[in-house]
Design a protein around this nucleic acid. Structure first.
Length: 466
RNA sequence: GGUGACGUGGCAGAGCGGUUAUGCGUGAGCCUGCAAAGCUUAUCUAAAGGGGUUCGACUCCCUUCGUCACCUCCA
């Protein structure tokens, strides 16, 4: 059983994650009308890392992440480009998977699409209409906010305040300006038949329908970016709880925004950095380290400096891994078993306390620093390494960091070249020795000269470094 | 205007009512034929301002100032 506690937005408190056989997570995905940016990636990485942490501790996770593939934005984009809405959404779903795979995100259990769950939504809406939580009007079917007395409990908003807000559109056909659309009438494609008339679903209803369908009436964690708290998640609660008369998600977990110059990254401001862009320049490992460098609930400001800092950290991880992988018998040694045990415990403790990845990373890098400094003194024995590697690999797996690995045959051939270089150096044939070094370098390998031996590592090639 | 979050050393960023967070950067050094990487060590002795509670506050309370997010679509 996991000891993890997570901050719940609804109760504004840390809650123990309780579950029976598995942890069920619903994560609000993206609207597929354009490339995803690093802000989207952050949310996905946070939840992927959480999932990895649970799974690495033998907890089964069912993760559902939806695609919003019917929406005004998609339709508009389709019109602009003279394409079908379906063409646009499937194109960007594909892009999404490409980004996601490159970021080393574990595939979710399922990626339901809104357009494939229209019947489920209609059933849900029907029941809401039947129990007076919703009504049909001229433009569509609306949720009757006044029927849900707890409306505003997630976002801590009062309906009076919302009503007096200036930004709510006035729609004469709605009973109240707060009422939101479950179904929008439309003769335009894409549209579907419904008991109330042809049209398409509203945004919020899809997540209610799909989360209930795949995860049941109440599941462990509902996640998404902070910006979804209102109105999206607030409305989901209203719909779902009016439908089931039960508590919806047990924990609402929200990830902070990525900002640029302190300002939220968003398409409307036009300050977005696409996942593709970040991957091209920095690679997945740096991107992942960057995205979990602060607490998940807080914003992270996107700067090149910060990415560079994380690149340096990646190099330290690589060094550590290769020091362990290539460790040989040495005379001197030091007992590192307590370091390893403590690191593992503190790492887990940090993540168990509201998934504090920032604190967890500091434990992780402390361990790496210690191992690297012992290695520099040639005090890492084969036995040490065999003890340390599983701990390191556990953490790497949780963090989703993929180090370039090598086969035993590769190790042998590299060492052959290194020995060749050593011989040349001893004979002071430095020019020849440097040629061998270049040859090794062209294999993506860099050398680390210690006092008595030369160690090496396969480094991830990072464009931004050059 | 309403609601929520936040303000920590050059930068990033945690915890904690009394103990060095950590990392990056920077300086010096070690290693080296050179380089890179790595390593060692030093450095900054931080808490937006003002009150209060306390033997003691960065940590709790109040207040002023500032920043951000949401209140429209948004991860």
């Amino acid at each position: 059983m996991s000891q993890i506690k997570i901050h719940d937005t609804l109760t504004n408190s840390k809650k123990k994650l309780e579950f029976s056989d598995k942890v069920r997570i619903y994560l609000c995905g993206v609207t597929v009308y354009d490339q995803s940016h690093i802000g989207h990636a952050r949310t996905i990485i946070v939840f992927d890392t959480l999932r990895r942490f649970l799974e690495a501790n033998d907890i089964q996770v069912e993760l559902i992440q939806n695609f919003t593939d019917v929406d005004d934005k998609i339709i508009n984009r389709a019109k602009e480009q003279g394409e079908s809405a379906n063409g646009i959404s499937s194109k960007y779903i594909q892009t999404y998977f490409e980004d996601s795979d490159r970021l080393n995100i574990r595939r979710a259990t399922n990626y339901p699409k809104a357009t494939e769950h229209i019947d489920d939504m209609i059933n849900l809406i029907q029941k809401l209409v039947d129990n007076e939580s919703a009504y049909a009007s001229k433009n569509g079917v609306y949720f009757r906010v006044s029927e849900f007395s707890e409306y505003g409990k997630l976002s801590k908003k009062k309906t009076e305040d919302l009503e007096s807000g200036a930004r709510i559109e006035v729609d004469e056909s709605k009973e109240s300006p707060l009422d939101f659309a479950l179904w929008k009438f439309s003769d335009e494609q894409p549209n579907w038949e419904s008991p109330w008339g042809k049209g398409r679903p509203g945004w919020h209803i899809e997540c209610s329908a799909m989360s209930i369908k795949y995860l049941g009436k109440n599941f462990e964690i509902h996640g998404g970016g902070r910006d979804l708290i209102f109105p999206h998640h607030e409305n989901e609660i209203a719909q779902s709880e009016s439908f089931t008369s039960e508590q919806f998600a047990k924990i609402w977990m929200h990830a902070g925004m990525i900002t640029i110059n302190g300002e939220k990254m968003s398409k409307s401001i036009g300050n977005v950095k696409s996942i593709n862009h970040v991957l091209e320049s920095w690679g997945a490992n740096v991107a992942r380290l960057f995205c979990i460098s602060g607490h998940y609930s807080k914003p992270i400001d996107y700067t090149e400096e910060l990415l560079k800092e994380n690149l340096i950290k990646l190099r330290q991880i690589e060094t550590c891994y290769y020091e362990l992988r290539l460790a040989e018998k040495t005379q001197e040694t030091e007992d590192i078993s307590s370091l390893l045990k403590e690191s593992r415990e503190k790492f887990d403790a940090a993540l168990n306390d509201d998934f504090n990845t920032s604190l967890g990373l500091s434990v992780f890098f402390n361990m790496i620093k210690t191992i690297n400094s012992l290695a520099a003194d040639e005090k890492i024995t084969k036995e040490n390494a065999e003890m340390a590697l599983p701990v390191l690999e556990y953490m790497l797996e949780v963090l989703g960091i993929k180090i370039q690995t090598v086969s035993d045959e590769e190790i042998e051939s590299v060492f052959k070249l290194i020995n060749k270089r050593e011989e040349l150096r001893e004979q002071k044939q430095f020019e020849e020795a440097d040629k061998v070094r270049d040859e090794i370098g062209s294999m993506g390998i860099s050398l680390i000269d210690h006092k008595n031996k030369t160690i090496w590592m396969k480094k991830e090639s990072i464009k931004a470094e050059r």
